[in-house]
């Protein structure tokens, strides 16, 4: 089954773990050169960050692509500031999971709740947030479900609006819950160095 498939491919990766600042940080290196990094809270075992990066066609490293968690401060300073970047007053789209739900927060959205509408595009396997005043539009997919090839269920969605923030939740299906438990058990078995010099197998 596809769920098992993804778990097996994760188990087959070269993994490095370390515990730092109350977070368990894990780095995966897939056989095709793709890298993935995850951070879990030690106490609650919640996923805080998940990001991945691939090499582009010419062999150069791309930027980290953030799947879960806040985007870090931009590292490429001088060059980037010469060009174009989004104004800080624009809506910010962040995924932040809980134990039972996938959850997305869109901050800086000052419009009332009636403005927003949520729809699911089954053919493209993504969900779309629209605003009736045509100020915000976002198409996003759930990579977790895509990887395990699980169906997208529009009834599992719910959303709320408070403090200029739109919160969208999607109930995790039980396959995903099982997968995450299994993975966490696997990660806890790993010997994690705490801080300092790490013997990094993946680099």
């Amino acid at each position: 089954m596809a769920v098992q498939c993804w778990l097996d491919s994760l188990k087959a990766t070269k993994k490095t773990a370390l515990i730092q600042d109350g977070k368990r940080k894990v780095h995966y290196l897939f056989s095709d050169g793709k890298e993935m990094a995850e951070e879990y809270d030690i106490k609650t075992d919640e996923l805080i960050v998940r990001k991945s990066r691939v090499k582009n066609a010419l062999g150069a490293q791309r930027q980290w692509e953030i799947e879960v968690g806040e985007p870090g401060p931009s590292i490429s300073g001088a060059q980037e500031s010469q060009l174009i970047k989004e104004n800080s007053s624009n809506p910010v789209f962040v995924r932040k999971d809980t134990k039972t739900c996938f959850q997305w927060r869109i901050r800086n959205l000052p419009y009332p709740k009636e403005v927003y509408s949520l729809s699911v595009e089954q053919t493209e396997r993504c969900c779309i947030v629209r605003t009736t005043n045509k100020k915000y539009f976002k198409k996003f997919s759930i990579p977790d479900l895509d990887r395990s090839q699980l169906p997208l269920d529009s009834s599992a969605f719910s959303f709320a609006h408070a403090n200029n923030t739109l919160i969208i939740s999607y109930q995790k299906p039980k396959e995903i819950l099982l997968l995450e438990q299994e993975l966490l058990r696997e990660l806890k078995k790993m010997k994690a160095t705490s801080d300092g010099e790490v013997d990094c197998k993946t680099q």
Binding site: Q82, I84, N90, R130, T131, K134, K135, F137, K138
Partner: peptide
């Protein structure tokens, strides 16, 4: 569908 404000750098 949407509208966004961008900050411009000097080169841009």
């Amino acid at each position: 569908e949407m509208e966004t404000i961008y900050d411009l750098g000097s080169k841009m």
